[in-house]
């Protein structure tokens, strides 16, 4: 799949940072507002997909490799499950939210009426892990499908 016209490329280039920032915002505020790792990750991945479509899969294939994405995905998943395992070590139960109520980052206890980012305990950490996994996973799916289609075009 080749890239599209210059207009599309430019517009995609301009809007891409905004999409990514918005997606990262959704991930980071997952424990405060609607959204979270999956939703934010999907937003970021769609931004990446926009670039992919605009610049073409051939160009993208020079920039990124398939197994890098799967590595990233694995890292996200391992991060998620490691946080859950830390629950056993520090909180006594799998998935236990051991950070809430401590002085660590995100350790604050939420109060009604005031959105405080420094709350949520392990939830933001898990959101980051899931976000990473979803970004890599969803973009990976789109990327591989695009590669598959471009191979088809070549052979045809």
């Amino acid at each position: 799949m080749n890239g599209m016209t210059k207009i599309v490329k430019t517009i995609a280039g301009i809007s891409f940072p905004f999409i990514v920032i918005y997606g990262l915002y959704v991930i980071a505020h997952g424990h405060l507002t609607p959204g979270g790792g999956f939703q934010g990750g999907a937003v970021v991945a769609s931004g990446l997909a926009l670039i992919l479509v605009a610049y073409g899969s051939k160009w993208a294939a020079t920039k990124i490799k398939e197994h890098d994405l799967s590595l990233l995905e694995s890292v996200g998943a391992i991060g998620f499950i490691t946080v859950a395992f830390f629950g056993i070590l520090f909180g006594g139960v799998f998935f236990s939210n051991f950070i809430v109520g401590t002085d660590l980052l995100f350790g604050g206890i939420p109060l009604a009426g005031a959105a405080d980012i420094n709350t949520g305990g392990t939830l933001p950490l898990m959101n980051f892990a899931v976000g990473l996994k979803v970004i890599a996973g969803l973009f990976g799916i789109v990327f591989i499908m695009a590669l598959a289609i471009s191979k088809k075009e070549e052979s045809a």
Binding site: P34, A112, G113
Partner: peptide
Amino acid sequence: TAPIWTSS
């Protein structure tokens, strides 16, 4: 309303 405790 949406079920968000902190900003309800």
